[in-house]
Write a protein that binds this DNA or RNA. Structure first.
Lengths: 150, 150
DNA sequence: ATGAAATTGAAATTCATATTCAAATGACTA
DNA sequence: TAGTCATTTGAATATGAATTTCAATTTCAT
């Protein structure tokens, strides 16, 4: 059993909830996917693997995973909310490709530092932040260039 | 007439749309408010001032204002979308206070530069970005400290 | 003023999130 | 093991913001 699953079980225990087959199945498929999944996408993924779980349960379990710190909510400007694996994953920002929809996880210690400084200047106590950069990834950028040369 | 209104009129003209009383009223109240308004908030604000405009029209006009570049959409992690004045306002990031709900507009040229660099390292062509820092503003931070000392 | 076209706004629709509640499952006790 | 109570599940429903529909109204061009 992975550490992430252990942490999730621990959280469930502490909240005096029950460790059920559905909760474990959903958590495992989510963690294995390694993707930024919406409730519906995870629900469909489970169906593909012939794991039975209702949308409501997937929804509630993702909420639990989020509360437990194993998963994190991400809002990449779409209408739907997504979840990413947070446990064992350090903080990062996103480069979101508007061409192919992919996102790249990036990190810059210097940017983090500058943010701290910026907050300090305003007497602001930061607790979390989100930096998303939208644009074209390497391959989509090349693609676009090609098209332009036609 | 302000420059922002002029720009909006120009945009409407170019799109072969009509300059109507509702559109102008909505645009003016929005621009004067200087706040980050949701569709409903602007609708209520108009009602207070006894300006007649339906929700659908407010919604559509904010969309037009956004398309024209006079307004910009902001997503500060709430369920509802907000609009801010963009015209005559340089790019900025947000410090969002989770205590009182206020936001502070901030800017750091250095952070912008670091972002460019970060993108370049990944062969990513940025077109826009959004940086929101959540936490406690000066007064809410003090408030919290006081409570802690009780 | 007249007709064609655009706009308005109340109401309906859409779509994701969230909740309800009866049935199923699990925990616990005698 | 059987009985009892609490939790969980999931289909169905509710919610709420964004968006669209469409009949009535307004505007524009002539």
């Amino acid at each position: 059993m992975t550490k992430a699953i252990k942490k999730f079980r621990k959280y469930i225990d502490e909240k005096n909830l029950q460790i059920t087959r559905q909760r474990m199945d959903i958590a495992e498929v989510f963690l294995q996917s390694g993707r930024h999944l919406s409730v519906d996408e995870l629900y469909e993924l489970l169906k593909e693997r012939e794991i039975s779980a209702g949308r409501a349960t997937v929804f509630r379990t993702l909420k639990l995973l989020n509360e437990s710190g194993v998963a994190g909510e991400v809002d990449l400007g779409e209408k739907t909310r997504r979840y990413e694996v947070k446990f064992g994953n350090t903080h990062h920002d996103h480069l979101v490709c508007t061409g192919c929809g992919r996102y790249i996880e990036v990190y810059s210690g210097q940017i983090e530092e500058m943010q701290e400084k910026l907050c300090a200047e305003h007497g602001f106590k930061p607790s979390s932040h989100r930096l998303d950069i939208f644009g074209l990834c390497r391959s989509c950028g090349i693609e676009k260039k090609k098209k332009g040369y036609r």
